[in-house]
Design a protein around this nucleic acid. Structure first.
Lengths: 120, 120
DNA sequence: GGAACAAGTTCCCTTTAGGAAACAAGTATC
DNA sequence: GATACTTGTTTCCTAAAGGGAACTTGTTCC
């Protein structure tokens, strides 16, 4: 990928396939809280109330909704641990772990950006 | 980062700093079209009409707005090339290039996800 | 002079996202 | 039996995002 141009050395279909892939990822991760939730779950299994405390600012409705969508996409797993006060734990699936490189890069860039804006 | 937990081996402030960095990145990249526009610009300099054609589905208003926001954040540059029919070219800045690792990972994952959903 | 293109801008409207608060079901505790 | 806790769900509402079409300004082409 040197100095190529979308309309020259790449066919348009190659180019749009690239954009489509990126768009697919963004669709899966859409919503204000999904990435925060996944990032938080990378630190370990969490219960609903843990997440609600740690993902600062989220409300029950949004947390519930985002968790459902993440589960549908196979990124997290909802474990019902039957006991006296049935405990529910959320954890990242192996598939969800494949997002790690993205999240690491997002985190890295966020720190870089902060330095650029605040520091010289 | 083995089996640590946000509320145990990491301080809460470490944990939220991580989440904050990620959130900062997402804020800069928010909007339906920003990543598509940057990705398209990675293939070379583009004019307004090029982008409008290649970023399938975007309208003038949104393209204009997203380009402005990207420029404000220093990710792209707007070059006015004075000539008979003044040409305006958009290109990624060096700072914008620092997003490449993120975009590459987003693209990779999108393709992986497509295979997972369609293939076995 | 009329049509066309480039690069937007403006106006108006619809859709979606998101938040607050109340409610619910099951259990446990006092 | 009343209260509280957990894990949500439901309802209602507002703000923000996004889209479409028309308009603009300057230029060139016929």
């Amino acid at each position: 990928m040197d100095d190529v141009n979308c309309s020259e050395r790449h066919t348009l279909s190659q180019c749009t396939r690239e954009l489509k892939a990126i768009q697919d990822t963004m669709d899966v991760l859409n919503g204000k809280w999904k990435i925060s939730i996944i990032s938080d779950l990378r630190f370990g299994k969490k219960r609903f109330s843990d997440l609600k405390r740690e993902v600062v600012g989220i409300g029950s409705k949004m947390l519930s909704k985002e968790l459902q969508e993440l589960e549908i996409n196979g990124l997290i797993r909802r474990n019902v641990i039957s006991g006296r006060p049935v405990i529910i734990e959320y954890e990242i699936t192996d598939y969800g772990e494949t997002l790690n490189p993205i999240i690491d890069e997002l985190s890295k860039w966020g720190k870089l950006h902060r330095h650029k804006i605040l520091g010289t």
